[in-house]
Each structure stands twice: as C-alpha cells, then as structure tokens.
C-alpha cells in the first residue's frame, strides 16, 4: 500500500493530537447549530404553537449562507500560516533540503487544511438533515450546495496557501487572505450591482431597455459565491434579464474556482523553490 505523503501525515498527526481540533469542530457546530435553531425558534415565535415544515427551504438557505460565512472565515485562517508558519518556526529550510518537492509540500499542506475543513463540513450534515426531513428541497440541490462548498473551500485554501508562501509573516498573510476572500464574497456582488446600475442608467437615458445582462456583470455574478449558492437553492439572485453563456452559472463558478486554485498552487510551488528566489517570474 502506498504511504501517505509525510508532510500530510505529520500535519494530520499534529492537528488531531491536540485538543484544539475537536474544540474547533465543537465551536463550529455550536455556532451553526445555534444559528439554525435560533432561526427556527424565531419562526416558531412569529407563528406560535406549530412549526411550518414549508419554511424548511428558507432555513436551509439561511444555514447555507451561515456555512458559507463560516467557511470564508475558517479556511483562510487555517491555511494562511501553513508555509509562513514553517518559516517562522525555522523548520522550512530543513524541509526544503529533503527529497520533498516544493510543490509536494504546498499540496500536502493544502490537503491537510482542506481535509480538516471537509471534516467541519461533513460534521454539519446532521444539521442539514434536521432541515431536510421537512422536505422542500431536491436531493440534487443539496448535492449542489455540498459541491459548491467543496469548490469554494478549495479556492479559499489556495488563496491562503499562496499568501502564506508569498508573505514572510503569518499576520500579513492572514490579513491579505481575508481581504481577498472578502472581496470575492462581498466585493464581486457589489461590483456586479454597481456596474449593472451604471448600464441601466445609461440605457434609461438612451430610452432603451437592456435586452441582456452585460457580460462583465454576468461574469461577476456567476463567480460571486453568495449569488451562486442562492441560485442553486432556487432563489432569483441575479441582476438583469440574464445572458446566454458558454457554461451554466454553476459551471462558470466551478471552472473559475478550480482554474484559479490550480494556478495559485502551481505558483506557490514555484515560489517556494529556493532556487527561484532571485529569479523574477516575469521579465
């Protein structure tokens, strides 16, 4: 049987040996569970004496949004120190003189962080089942949401790892990772709305009606995680009348996340190679 990558094995051993990991899982479940049950409680208070199963879709949406928020918060925090932390602990140089390749080190670190995040995701499945048992959602939608979370997690982890490779200090790496993820979650939605409004005003002043959503707006809203997850859940979270694209919105989102992640991981591997330190990537 092939042995696990040594860095991955060590990371998993270190991660799950301390009390911190179960504590993080516990806190994650407490926050998400508290959020969902709190929402159910509020719904029940507004319609006392009974709970409306029909509102389960609404709860599922709220739960998914909370999950997305937590992922955007947890994943950069877990990954933004994986390489810079090695550098700060003064263990990176020794690691780089072994037979492990820089890319192998980056990928192992990333898999380790993602596996922990995946554990967080799967640990919340009982919460989803709480909602799912009331009906209101197709199994495909639930699978779609799960896939969406996994793809988003990959992108956020790649952003964290590449910042950690580029910046020497974990503090700066963490802040930058959060900044980029915040832009992806909120910034792209804001830009999408802003640009669409500009187009709309221009169209109104020219006394015409927009026949289709401008390409840039469509791209921005197809890559905004909040708008994408809402659309997976059947909400109409778009600006404009829509536009024919090469891929469905979830395809655009998946391809964008995967391509950016792969590029960031390859770049991190290149950047981590000490022999590339005094070579410029572009000249």
């Amino acid at each position: 049987m092939k042995e696990l990558n040594p860095v991955l094995l060590k990371e998993l051993r270190q991660r799950f040996r301390t009390y911190r990991s179960p504590l993080v899982v516990l806190l994650y479940l407490l926050v998400l569970g508290g959020f969902s049950l709190g929402y159910i409680y509020l719904r029940w208070r507004s319609a006392p004496a009974f709970f409306q199963p029909g509102s389960s879709k609404e709860i599922f949406t709220v739960l998914s949004m909370a999950q997305l928020g937590l992922l955007a918060f947890v994943v950069p925090g877990l990954t933004a120190g994986v390489i810079s932390g090695e550098r700060e602990r003064q263990t990176l140089n020794v690691l780089l003189t072994t037979e492990l390749t820089p890319l192998g080190i980056v990928v192992s670190k990333m898999i380790s962080s993602c596996s922990f995040t995946a554990l967080l995701l799967f640990a919340t499945l009982p919460l989803y089942s709480l909602v799912f048992m009331f009906g209101g959602l197709a199994p495909l939608q639930i699978l779609g949401v799960l896939g969406f979370f996994l793809v988003s997690m990959l992108l956020y982890a790649a952003i964290g790892v590449s910042c950690s490779t580029y910046f020497k200090r974990t503090g700066i790496s963490t802040i930058t990772s959060y900044g980029i993820v915040f832009f992806l979650v909120a910034g792209t939605a804001f830009l999408s709305g802003f640009i669409y409004t500009l187009y709309q005003q221009q169209a109104q002043s020219a006394m015409i009606k927009l026949q289709e959503t401008p390409l840039i707006v469509q791209l921005l809203q197809d890559t905004n995680p909040v708008m994408v997850v809402l659309r997976i859940l059947g909400e109409n979270a778009t600006f404009g009348p829509g536009r024919e694209m090469w891929l469905p919105y979830w395809g655009t989102y998946t391809v964008t996340c995967v391509v950016i992640s792969v590029v960031l991981i390859l770049w991190s591997g290149w950047k981590l190679n000490p022999m590339n330190h005094n070579r410029k990537l572009f000249r």
Binding site: K10, R13, Q14, R17, T18, R89, Q90, T91, N93, V94, T97
Partner: peptide, 15 residues
C-alpha cells in the same frame, strides 16, 4: 547527498 543543519532551526510541536 547532503545532511544540512542550519545555525538556527526549530522543531515541530506535538511530535
């Protein structure tokens, strides 16, 4: 071919 020991180095916690 080499075994390298730097002047400053750290060790991993929890191992």
């Amino acid at each position: 071919l080499i075994g390298y020991m730097p002047d400053f180095f750290g060790v991993y916690d929890g191992l």
